[in-house]
Simulated assay, not measured.
Amino acid sequence: MGYGFSREDVAFLTSAAGTAALAEVDRLELTPATHLRDLERVRRAHGAVTPALIDTVRLRRKASAKLSGAAQWLFTDDALQQATPSLVARARAQRLAGRAVHDVTCSIGAELAELARVCPAVLGSDLDDVRLRMAAHNLAHSPASGNVLVAKADALVPVSRDTVVIADPARRADGRRTHDPAKLQPPLPDLLAAYAGRDIAVKCAPGLDFDSLDGSGEVEVVSLDGAVREACLWSPGLTEPGVTRRATVLSSTGAPVVLTDAEPDDIPERAPGDWIIDPDGAIVRAGLVRHYAARHGLWQLDPQIAYLTGDRVPAGLRGFRILDRLELREKALRQELARRDCGALEILVRGVDIDPDALRKRLKLRGAQPYTLVLTRIGRTGTAFLCTAHRA
């Protein structure tokens, strides 16, 4: 759960004395091995504010991989966990460039910092006093903040006009992560009802049951560096004509890839080609596997399975060159892998109920050659493809 920060903690941490104390604590290792020694040292110097100092330094270090320019920010543990990664927030902000925006669940301000770069007026509101104070501090330490106002307000009670509304409901109910739209905080149906007729974008977990929604507008699934991060629901006024599903594939090192259901999805039915391609999770979750295949001249191993195949690998992607097609029987796999001197084995699974880690242990591989094993089904037949991995 992390330390429960108070308004008094935030007041101290944002003071000159707090800034100096944080710099002092940041020089400590703060590792499990040094925990007791570091804790005692900080407690002797700073007394009751020790937990706030140590947690802030730890959270800043943790945030460095997720949020850009957050070395002087303040967080709570929960707020940092739910904060949108900077690259994801930046991509959303670009879709709203030039619009006035109101983030009705602004928390510690991660979205506000990116919106401020491209939007002429930005309002952030929340019911949590501590997070609002942290947001104000964080924005003051962001590149663009002069056009941002933060205020206390209930997300379900509209307090702005002529703005695009952004919301990020909490995805935990009764201490557990939930994919039920009605159990989000605030509940998604209530949120959409409160802003009926308004332009609104709602960030949700990628596991949300999209089919339970009314189907209007667009569902965008976003991944970052290969990991699916979120789904975002966009109201009709914020979408392109004919688009109801979008996959946005972001990378820390390359240009984004965007795919929508407005693109063609006609692909042939053919035998497996030379390669197997495992599409990015955002493409799979958005239901755009066929669209992606059509864009790159690929086809599916099976119409119900998300693995693609073809005679080449799209530029910049990792593909698996098929060496052999085997029966999905453990004994046969063990014999063939031993014959090929297999050591390190990557196992990919779709459409069959197999635990890759458990199977890898049972295969008892002791060789020197690395391989990839793709386990799936074609029709009702379990199939194994022995491959080598390459990047185009």
Results as ranks from 00 to 15, higher is better:
residue 3 Y to S: 07
residue 8 E to D: 15
residue 9 D to T: 11
residue 10 V to Q: 02
residue 12 F to V: 09
residue 13 L to A: 11
residue 13 L to W: 12
residue 16 A to N: 10
residue 27 R to V: 05
residue 30 L to M: 11
residue 37 R to C: 12
residue 39 L to F: 12
residue 43 R to E: 07
residue 43 R to C: 03
residue 44 R to Y: 05
residue 44 R to H: 08
residue 47 G to S: 05
residue 48 A to G: 04
residue 51 P to F: 03
residue 56 T to P: 06
residue 61 R to G: 05
residue 62 K to R: 15
residue 62 K to W: 10
residue 66 K to C: 09
residue 72 Q to F: 10
residue 77 D to T: 13
residue 78 D to I: 01
residue 79 A to G: 15
residue 82 Q to W: 03
residue 83 A to N: 07
residue 86 S to E: 13
residue 88 V to C: 12
residue 91 A to W: 14
residue 97 A to G: 03
residue 99 R to T: 00
residue 105 T to E: 06
residue 105 T to W: 05
residue 106 C to Q: 12
residue 109 G to C: 15
residue 112 L to P: 10
residue 114 E to I: 02
residue 116 A to P: 12
residue 118 V to R: 00
residue 122 V to H: 11
residue 124 G to S: 09
residue 130 V to E: 10
residue 132 L to E: 13
residue 132 L to T: 13
residue 135 A to P: 12
residue 143 P to A: 15
residue 157 V to I: 11
residue 157 V to F: 04
residue 162 D to T: 04
residue 163 T to G: 00
residue 173 A to R: 01
residue 173 A to I: 00
residue 174 D to R: 01
residue 175 G to W: 04
residue 175 G to C: 00
residue 176 R to T: 02
residue 176 R to L: 06
residue 177 R to S: 01
residue 177 R to K: 07
residue 182 A to N: 06
residue 182 A to M: 01
residue 186 P to Y: 04
residue 187 P to F: 04
residue 187 P to L: 02
residue 189 P to W: 04
residue 195 Y to G: 07
residue 196 A to Q: 08
residue 200 I to R: 00
residue 200 I to E: 02
residue 201 A to E: 05
residue 202 V to P: 05
residue 202 V to G: 10
residue 206 P to H: 10
residue 207 G to L: 06
residue 207 G to K: 00
residue 207 G to E: 06
residue 208 L to T: 10
residue 210 F to M: 14
residue 211 D to E: 14
residue 211 D to C: 09
residue 213 L to Y: 03
residue 213 L to D: 10
residue 220 E to H: 09
residue 229 R to E: 15
residue 235 S to W: 01
residue 236 P to Q: 07
residue 236 P to Y: 02
residue 239 T to R: 05
residue 239 T to E: 03
residue 241 P to A: 08
residue 243 V to Y: 02
residue 245 R to E: 14
residue 246 R to W: 01
residue 247 A to W: 01
residue 250 L to S: 03
residue 253 T to F: 07
residue 254 G to R: 15
residue 255 A to E: 08
residue 261 D to R: 00
residue 269 E to I: 12
residue 269 E to W: 10
residue 274 D to M: 11
residue 276 I to M: 03
residue 277 I to Y: 03
residue 278 D to Y: 08
residue 280 D to H: 12
residue 286 A to K: 02
residue 287 G to I: 00
residue 288 L to K: 13
residue 297 G to V: 02
residue 298 L to F: 02
residue 303 P to N: 06
residue 303 P to H: 09
residue 303 P to G: 04
residue 306 A to R: 10
residue 313 V to M: 07
residue 313 V to W: 07
residue 323 L to I: 04
residue 325 R to C: 06
residue 326 L to C: 08
residue 326 L to E: 10
residue 328 L to E: 05
residue 328 L to K: 00
residue 329 R to G: 08
residue 332 A to K: 10
residue 332 A to D: 11
residue 333 L to P: 06
residue 334 R to F: 03
residue 334 R to W: 00
residue 338 A to C: 05
residue 344 A to I: 08
residue 348 L to T: 05
residue 348 L to Q: 07
residue 349 V to E: 08
residue 354 I to D: 10
residue 358 A to Y: 06
residue 364 K to L: 11
residue 370 P to N: 11
residue 374 V to I: 15
residue 377 R to G: 11
residue 381 T to S: 13
residue 381 T to V: 11
residue 387 C to S: 01
residue 389 A to I: 02
